[in-house]
Every structure is written in C-alpha cells, then in structure tokens.
C-alpha cells in the first residue's frame, strides 16, 4: 500500500490536543478579562455566565422551549428545505448533464436563478408562502438547490470520456453507462455540493427564524437581542456553531464511507 502518512503541523495527537486546549483556555481568559472591563463589559457577559446559561437552556426553557427543542425546530426546517433541494437538485443536475434537450431547456432558467443569493428570496418567500413554515422551507430550499445542482451537473458532465469509452466497448448501453460510470463519477462532487449547501441551508434557517418565528436557534439570538440579553444571543450562536459542526462532521463521515475509493490515498 502506498498510502501516504498524513503530516499534521503538530506532530502527534497528544500535541495537537494540548494546543487545542491551550487555544481554548486563552480565548476564555481574554474573553473573561474583557467582560470585567468598563463600557463593553455591559454587553459582554463573562464566558462562565454563557456556559452556565447554555447548560441551563437544556433544562429551563428559553421562551417556550428548551435548547434541544429549539435545535429540533431549526433542524427540522433545514432538513425539509434541504431535503427538497436535494430531491430537486440532484436529478436536475443529472438531467442537465446527460441530456442535450434537458440542458437546452433548464440551463437558461438555471443561469438566471444561479447568481441570486438565497437570502434575496426572502421577500418573495414571505409574499408567496406567508410567515409560517412553508416560506422557511422555500427559502432554505432555494439556498441549497443551486449548489447541489451545480455540483451534480459538473460532476456528471465531466465524467472521464476514456472510462465511458471503455465501458461502451465492453457493451454497456446508455442506462448502464449512467448507472456504472456517470453517477459514480459525480458522487464526489455531489458530496461537495451537499456539504456546501448544508452550510448554506443552516445560514438560511437562522435568517428565516429571525424574520418571524417563536422558536429555533435563530429565534434565540433575535429574541436575546430584543431583550438586550447578550448572554442569550451568544448561547444561541454557540448552539448554531455546535450543530453546524456536528452536521458537517457527520456528512464527512458519510462521505468517507461511501467514497472510500476517492479519499484513500489522498
């Protein structure tokens, strides 16, 4: 096996761990010192207060819900909107890559929609779908859709012609080419699209919840701001960061399982 050993800047695992802890301690110390000082200190709660509030939020409700419930609400919105984006985006990308007619039909539409940032859909989302859940799903879907479609499209379009030739030579028909060559060629790109779009979707849910909601991690932040409760704002931000981190880690783990062939040896 010629798998190269990865070189991390900190030689060993323990070393990396020590540096990690050190950076965290310094962050908390500086934060704590700033929070003691005069003018900003007022809107700058000590890290220990934030940590306490964060832990508390899992037991005592912020607004009507505990932290886990807030996270659940946000995640549900993301999963529905993002799921819609996946269900539409992957087939759309594949159709545009594999069928000339499909590309001719969808590409002009898509080229118009593509440069519009997801958040620019907020007014239309509200006008079309109101202030309830549907407009949030729509907004998140539009944010995720573009990245997923583009990555799928390019992944499938640039499937290696040599491999397509080799498979045809062995008798593969159109459908077999699609299943055995084009789709697997596109999978690394599709995963990149999913990861990027998930991050985008997670941003969009925060924006959606700031506009109008009674729950969710975005709501925690916005509500905290309205009541000048800085600790609550930061608690919400920490929750958003942690959930985003966990989600992207899970997606990476999934990719490593499904695309072992692509990651090994890198």
């Amino acid at each position: 096996m010629n798998r190269k050993k990865k070189r991390s800047f900190a030689g060993s695992r323990t070393e990396a761990l020590v540096y990690g802890i050190l950076s965290l301690v310094i962050l908390l110390a500086v934060w704590h010192l700033v929070s003691l000082g005069g003018r900003i200190g007022k809107f700058f709660p000590s890290p220990f207060l934030v940590i306490r509030d964060f832990a508390n939020a899992f037991v005592h409700a912020i607004g009507r819900n505990t932290m886990l419930e807030h996270i659940f609400f946000s995640l549900r919105r993301v999963l529905v909107g993002f799921g819609l984006g996946v269900v539409v985006g992957i087939p759309l990308g594949l159709v545009m890559a594999c069928s000339k007619a499909g590309r001719a039909f969808f590409m002009p539409l898509f080229s118009i929609v593509r440069p519009i940032p997801g958040l620019a859909w907020i007014p239309l989302a509200i006008l079309w779908f109101g202030l309830g859940e549907q407009s949030k799903y729509f907004l998140i879907c539009m944010t995720a859709l573009v990245g997923i479609t583009m990555q799928t499209f390019f992944g499938a379009l640039y499937a290696d012609p040599v491999l397509i030739g080799a498979a045809r030579m062995l008798g593969a028909g159109k459908f077999q080419l699609f299943v055995h060559i084009i789709l697997p060629s596109a999978i690394p790109n599709i995963f990149a699209g999913l990861q990027g779009s998930f991050a985008g979707a997670w941003c969009a849910v925060i924006a959606a919840e700031m506009i109008r909601s009674d729950e969710g991690t975005g709501w925690i932040i916005f509500n905290g701001m309205n009541y000048a409760n800085t600790a609550q704002v930061i608690v919400g931000m920490v929750a958003i960061g942690l959930v985003g981190l966990i989600a992207s880690t899970l997606l990476k783990a999934l990719e490593r399982r499904l695309c072992a062939w692509n990651i090994q040896g890198k």
Partner: peptide, 12 residues
C-alpha cells in the same frame, strides 16, 4: 475488447 493507452480503470 479495447485496452487503451490511457488508464481506463474505474477509480470507484
């Protein structure tokens, strides 16, 4: 069957 000059193994 055609053994091509380029590598034609499927990486997946």
């Amino acid at each position: 069957a055609y053994i091509m000059q380029e590598y034609s193994t499927m990486s997946w």
